[in-house]
Computed example of a mutant assay.
Amino acid sequence: MVRGWHGWLGTFNGVALITVAALPLAALAVWALAHRRSATGTTAAWRMSLADVGIVYGTVPWVWMIMLPGDRAGNVPGRVSLVPLRDLLTILAAGPLTVTLQVIGNLLVFATLGFLAPVRFAALASVPRILALAAGCSMLVEAAQYVLRLDRVSSVDDVLLNAAGAGLAALASRRWWRAPATAPSGPPRPAPVPGR
C-alpha cells in the first residue's frame, strides 16, 4: 500500500497525473468562487476567481515536485551552493536535454504566480514586486530543502531562475494587470481669483 501511494505522491509522473486529474476540480472551484462572488455583487468575480485558483493550481504541483526527496534523503546533510551561476554552468555542460529539463523546469516553478498575481492584486502590478515575491518564495523552498535534508542542493541559481520565470510571465500578462486604485476625480475646480 505504501509503495502504491508513493507511486502517486512521491514521483514526478505521479504528481503530473494528479495535477491533470485535478483540473476538473480546479474548474469547479473557479465556478463556485465566481458564483459566490457574483451573488455578493463583487465586480470582476470571474477574473478574481480564475486568478485565485490558477495561482494555487499552477504553483503547488511545481513546488511539490521540487520538494520530493532524493534517494539519500535524511541520510546526507543538506548541501548549499551560494555562488551565482556555478550550478547553471554545470547544467549547461551536462548536455541539451539536462539544460532543457533543469532550466525550463526552474523557470516554470513560479511562472503561474508571476502571470496571475498582478492580474489579481493591484499591489503586485509591477515586475520588481513580482521578482521580489518569487525570489522570496523560492528562498523559502530552498531553505526547506536544506532543513528537511531532502538530498537536494539548495542553490542560489534556482532562486535566480525561479524569479526570472515569474518576471517573464508577469511581462506576458501585463495587458491584464489590475490598475492601481486612484482617487476619484471630480470636475476641475476653478482657480481662485486673486483679491477675493
Rank of each mutant, 00 (worst) to 15 (best):
A144P: 03
R129C: 07
R152G: 03
D151K: 00
V153W: 01
M139T: 09
V147D: 12
D158S: 01
V147R: 05
L133D: 06
A143Q: 09
I130D: 14
R129T: 07
S138Y: 05
V147L: 14
S138G: 11
V127C: 11
L148I: 02
L140K: 10
A134H: 09
A143M: 14
S154K: 01
A132M: 05
D151Q: 04
L133N: 09
P128S: 06
Q145N: 03
A144M: 09
A135T: 13
A134M: 09
V156Q: 07
L148D: 04
Q145P: 00
D157R: 06
A134G: 14
Y146F: 15
L140R: 10
A143C: 14
P128F: 00
V153C: 08
R149D: 04
V127N: 07
V127S: 09
P128K: 06
A132R: 08
E142V: 02
V141N: 14
M139K: 01
C137E: 10
S154T: 06
C137D: 04
P128V: 07
R129D: 11
A132N: 05
Y146Q: 00
D151E: 12
L133W: 13
S138P: 03
V153K: 07
V127R: 15
D157Q: 05
C137K: 11
D158I: 07
S138Q: 08
M139N: 12
L140N: 06
R129A: 08
A144D: 02
R149W: 06
E142F: 10
S155P: 11
V153P: 09
A135C: 04
L150H: 04
S155I: 07
C137R: 06
V147I: 15
A135F: 12
E142D: 08
A134E: 10
S138C: 06
V156S: 09
S138M: 08
Y146R: 00
Q145L: 04
V156R: 03
A144G: 14
M139F: 13
G136E: 05
P128H: 10
S154L: 03
L133K: 13
R149E: 13
V153F: 07
A135I: 13
S155V: 00
L148C: 05
D158C: 03
V127G: 08
R149V: 01
V147M: 12
L140M: 10
E142R: 02
Q145W: 05
Q145T: 02
L140H: 07
D157E: 01
I130S: 15
D157T: 04
S138V: 00
A135S: 14
R129E: 07
L150K: 15
R129H: 02
A144V: 10
I130L: 15
Q145S: 00
S154C: 02
L133I: 09
V153H: 07
S138R: 06
M139Y: 08
R149C: 00
A143F: 09
S155E: 04
Y146W: 08
V127T: 11
